[in-house]
């Protein structure tokens, strides 16, 4: 279990102090697919980086299975919005790079990464360079890199945010299939309501300025999720609820709401 306890984070800017997160507390259960949903600037990425151990909170603590984290750990692996692949290394080296950073020799890392590239459907592209791949394929490499270190917890920072709509939907379907096979604990940051509803067990909706917890929504859709679930009444109800929560924060009039 991951406990996020009274996390606050302020940044020093030229205009003075900026409070990005204020007193954020929630829990993520083991093997749960947990999404953090919020508009830009709500501090959701900062929050994820705090859980990753990349950013220190000003106040509060993150407990994983009861013990406080003090930095990045073997139990967690991150998938980044902009993929963050080494442009000078081929797909296999990139997928093994997490292992390599954890101390495994390069050759061994490459070999150990191979089955994970199979899993994300890239076995034919192991010797390609990132710039030869589409965005969706690059993010598959990013996912394989995270899976290869066999983390208990997968931290995903708007992983499909940089992809076009079709690719995005395809990636969501593949991710939920992957998750059905091996239920890791996932914390998934997104600003897409559809994505949050389709993938998650629970969705935390965040408020802005400062970033804080607005509401926790249970997603009672049955698993395994089929793409057709998107057109079910429950799904629509859920995304409508999310929209009602988000609408006030971004100051958009009612007429612009999706059907």
């Amino acid at each position: 279990m991951i406990e996020i306890k009274e996390i606050s984070r302020t940044f020093q800017t030229r205009e003075g102090e900026f409070e990005a997160l204020s007193d954020v507390s929630f829990e993520v259960r083991d093997n749960e697919f947990f999404s953090i949903l919020g508009p830009s600037g709500c501090g959701k990425t900062t929050l994820l980086k705090i859980v990753a151990g990349l950013v220190k909170p000003t106040n509060g603590a993150i407990l994983v299975d009861g013990s406080a984290i003090s930095g990045p750990g073997e139990d967690r692996a991150m998938v980044f919005q902009q993929f963050v692949l080494l442009p000078w290394a081929d797909v296999l080296t990139n997928a093994g790079f997490g292992l390599e950073m954890r101390g495994a020799p390069r050759k061994e890392s490459r070999e150990r990464a191979r089955p994970f590239l199979d899993q994300v459907g890239l076995s034919r592209f192991v010797n390609h360079y990132p710039h030869e791949l589409s965005g969706g394929m690059q993010q598959r490499v990013g996912l394989a890199r995270a899976l290869a270190v066999n983390p208990d917890i997968l931290l995903m920072d708007e992983p499909f945010g940089a992809l076009d709509a079709q690719t995005r939907q395809l990636m969501q379907e593949d991710l939920t299939d992957l998750w059905d096979k091996e239920k890791k604990t996932v914390i998934f940051v997104t600003h897409s309501m559809d994505e949050a509803a389709y993938l998650s067990d629970r969705v935390l909706v965040m408020d802005t300025h400062p970033g804080r917890v607005k509401e926790l929504i249970d997603i009672p859709l049955e698993r395994p999720r089929k793409p057709s679930v998107r057109s079910s009444p429950v799904f629509t109800e859920l995304t409508t609820r999310m929209w009602q929560l988000l609408r006030g924060m971004i100051g958009v009039p009612d007429e612009l709401a999706p059907e």
């Binding site: 990753a52 151990g53 990349l54 990045p72 750990g73 073997e74 967690r76 692996a77 991150m78 980044f80 902009q82 963050v84 080494l86 790079f97 997490g98 390599e100 950073m101 954890r102 101390g103 890199r145 270190v149």
Partner: peptide, 16 residues
């Protein structure tokens, strides 16, 4: 971003 990614995977300064 690459350096941050490496740190998230426990990369040491030497390896980075």
């Amino acid at each position: 971003n690459l350096v941050e990614m490496a740190k998230s995977y426990l990369g040491t300064e030497r390896r980075i």
